[in-house]
Design a binder for these strands. Structure first.
Lengths: 229, 229
DNA sequence: CAGTGGTCTAGACCACCGG
DNA sequence: CGGTGGTCTAGACCACTGT
């Protein structure tokens, strides 16, 4: 008989989208709503908290709850491991380590990673295949200051991404996505014409404010990422 | 004295990242945890629910709570209106309507939008400027089945995006992002060389399962989107 | 200062699902 | 079937913030 917080949330969404509570409207307070719905205050509170997370309403102490003038558009995107991404598409996954050394990164990279002058890092280049066709090129720097274990790690069998996820899980991440023209090296490794428009991402991950790794991922021609929200 | 659910959540994170509860570990039940932390069961429940949302742990009835083997990588991205995006960068925003008509979309578009055969749609092409330099080209179809008001709307002053947000707020959205080579038209409107790698997005929005609009956004050369999580 | 949301409690019942 | 998380309650106090 009594409503659940989900039903209340749905009902509120109906009232918002249906025009009862148009954008900008001030909603009744929690006590009034709980009386109206015949539930405890905590229950309408739960529904309202969900609507805040969905970007539908805004709440402030004292001034109350109102429907956002422009609903906050945001999306959530899953970030799969390359291997899972490929295997999920039904293709077989292969991995190849192209380059691997330990060196001082060029100045721009070192600056971005916040490395001390002359600090060493592990540099890796890997290629991920879907059904023997190149799928993604991975160019990575791993800070040996933050992850000294990376100095001796062997990346011939396991990719650095999966290795890092096990070594240093739970990091802060900053991602940028962009379009890149294929240079000579990209064109060769990804088997496309030079100049081809490729989708790329740069990901920098942190642990306690310190950069762990900086990676550039470039996908083969035509790749798109999709999400629904 | 007694801990808040945030402090409990943070403490749990420490235990997880610190190795007390490594990936795969089965956590104590809520009753046990509430005893350990000296709080009510609802409070640890709140902390645990937050960790589920963050993709750190998994919970199932009867079998209990465990730390995810691989933390679920996901990100949240804000999707600003172009105008806000440009104005936030400190540039002046200008808008120009390039093309506008009402017609039957080509078959692939109609199919993707789920339109009946011969159904009409409003077609628009708009250019968004930052400081008088082309910033983003917007190619859009609006279903007149879903939004009949779009037939007579005037898009010379207000962009279709902002118009739609006011007319049809609160929609479901599907987004794809990709890299595109500039064709002749793109090169001209965005003032770049043909073949230039451009960042693009396709966004399809739905209301109650029905497609409202399908839009392709192409940004000027060098654009990147960024997010931190 | 006063009103609103934010959080906590102690207890209860329910829904799911693994053994 | 029984144990776990999921939800709800009625009440209380606190924290922020507009006036």
């Amino acid at each position: 008989m009594t409503m659940t917080y989900r039903e209340i949330k749905d009902d509120m969404m109906r009232r918002i989208t249906g025009g009862d509570w148009p954008p900008g409207t001030q909603l009744p307070g929690e006590i009034e709503l709980s009386a109206e719905y015949g539930v405890a205050r905590a229950t309408v509170g739960r529904a309202l908290r969900d609507l805040v997370e969905d970007g539908i309403i805004e709440r402030r102490r004292k001034s109350g709850t109102r429907v956002r003038a422009h609903p906050l558009r945001q999306m959530r995107m899953a970030i799969p491991l390359v291997r899972e991404e490929i295997e999920a598409s039904g293709a077989a996954y292969f991995y190849k380590l192209l380059e691997s050394d330990i060196s001082v990164p060029p100045a721009p990279v070192a600056a971005r990673m916040g490395l001390a002058e002359g600090a060493l890092a592990r540099r890796l280049a890997c290629l991920h295949y879907a059904d023997l066709k190149p799928y993604q090129l991975e160019d990575r720097w791993i800070s040996l200051t933050a992850v000294p274990e990376a100095e001796g790690a062997d990346f011939h069998e396991i990719g650095p991404n999966e290795w890092l996820v096990r070594q240093v899980p739970f990091t802060e991440v900053e991602v940028a996505m962009m379009a890149l023209p294929a240079d000579q090296r990209l064109a060769q490794t990804l088997e496309c014409a030079p100049g081809t428009a490729l989708f790329a991402a740069e990901r920098q991950t942190f642990r306690e404010g310190q950069t762990v790794t900086l990676v550039r991922l470039v996908w083969r021609e035509g790749h798109r990422i999709m999400t629904r929200y």
